[in-house]
Design a protein around this nucleic acid. Structure first.
Length: 188
DNA sequence: ACGCGGATGGCCT
DNA sequence: GGCCATCCGCGTA
């Protein structure tokens, strides 16, 4: 029996809670030829327009359009002229909160990941960064605005739950505002 | 084991 | 024009 994607109701909660609960779940890309997936081991919450570090703080622009979409939407953006990053939109449609997927532990299609990321020296470094995991899974602009809840090639599915004592909470990285807000979650 | 800087391009002011 | 929710390689220990 195939696993089923997490429903929209899962994402219709505070970004902080969704970020915590996404740990242990599985991000999967099935392009029709290959299935590539990984267990989510690091996330960051971006709370909404009132969060200075959130892309939604600048309002709904062409770039940030899908961050304001319905819960369970993929918000994929291009950064530093080189890298893609993927978020899961949370909260009410139009609100503008999301969870950045920061790292995975490879599960399926490791050989495909290695072909897509020939510079990775070990399996552990195939997906241990937001740009790396998008490269390894083949996530690009084509996934921006698609539903993670099914009907698209990119989905998030339930996995092995992570106990509270197995979660490390800390500040978000790579940002210049609200640098002390403890919204980064990582599997120990 | 760190720290630093170049790559590289879209978007907002 | 400047700023990025990054990655990689090279330098110094």
């Amino acid at each position: 029996m195939p696993t089923t994607p997490l429903p929209a109701a899962f994402y219709l909660r505070d970004a902080e809670q969704v970020a915590r609960d996404l740990l242990g779940c599985v991000l999967q890309h099935d392009d029709g030829t290959h299935v590539v997936s990984g267990r989510i081991i690091e996330t960051e919450a971006y709370l909404g327009p009132h969060d200075p570090a959130s892309h939604s703080a600048a309002g709904r622009t062409a770039r940030t359009w899908h961050m304001f979409g319905p819960p369970g939407t993929a918000y994929v953006y291009f950064i530093y002229g080189m890298h893609w990053c993927v978020n899961a939109v949370t909260g009410d449609d139009g609100y503008g909160s999301a969870v950045l997927i920061r790292a995975l532990a490879p599960l399926k299609g490791v050989d495909i990941m290695r072909a897509r990321r020939p510079k990775a020296r070990t399996d552990a470094t195939l997906c241990d960064g937001p740009g790396k995991l998008c490269a390894a899974l083949g996530i690009t602009r084509q996934h921006d605005g698609t539903a993670l809840t099914g009907g698209s090639s990119l989905t998030i599915r339930s996995g092995t739950p992570v106990a509270d004592h197995g979660v490390i909470v800390g500040p978000r990285v790579g940002i210049s505002k609200a640098v002390d807000w403890p919204l980064r979650f990582r599997v120990r």
